[in-house]
């Protein structure tokens, strides 16, 4: 029984992110408008928990911001105006995809930096391998005894 309850809880927990934490009471009646509100909310960062969007967060402030997004949409504002309203108050920090600027250059440049670093490491490794291959000494020529032995072995193998 207890295990069943745990399973049910786990199932619910895995479902929850897909559903969002929005209560039915705070959802918009029009499904198209509600979908727009969710899309906007997923782009806005919860300032309390910081690694969640306001759609996913249970924080009180996130709930207030969700409500504001829905009020503005219901009032007929377009997506851009709704995002600007929140951006005006909390700055770039509230955007989960911040614009490129001097402060975010390192953030956006990170993939390039990692790729370049990896490429450079690979290049150096290959260079070293090639240098090591070149460093093998040429094998000494066979002595007459060795040549005779090789011929005997080959004869054996042929027979």
């Amino acid at each position: 029984m207890r295990r069943l309850a745990t399973l049910a809880l786990l199932g619910w927990a895995s479902l929850a992110p897909a559903l969002g934490v929005g209560l039915p009471s705070e959802m918009l009646r029009d499904p198209a408008q509600e979908e727009r509100a969710r899309a906007i909310g997923r782009e806005l960062r919860c300032l309390v928990c910081q690694n969640q969007s306001i759609e996913d967060s249970e924080a009180e402030l996130a709930r207030d911001l969700r409500r504001i997004v829905r009020e503005r949409i219901a009032a007929g504002e377009d997506d851009r105006a709704v995002v600007d309203y929140v951006h005006d108050r909390y700055g770039d920090f509230v955007l989960l995809r911040p614009p490129f600027s001097a402060a975010t250059a390192l953030l956006w440049g990170m993939p390039l930096l990692a790729l370049g670093g990896g490429g450079l490491a690979l290049l150096l490794l290959r260079r070293r391998q090639r240098a090591e291959q070149g460093a093998w000494p040429e094998p000494a020529p066979l002595t007459p005894e060795e040549r005779a032995r090789l011929a005997a072995l080959e004869d054996d193998a042929a027979r």
Binding site: V48, E60, D64, L65, R89, Y90, G91
Partner: peptide
């Protein structure tokens, strides 16, 4: 309602 705080950009 906490709306004035949001207008100021208060997050806690």
């Amino acid at each position: 309602p906490g709306r004035v705080a949001i207008d100021w950009g208060v997050y806690g």
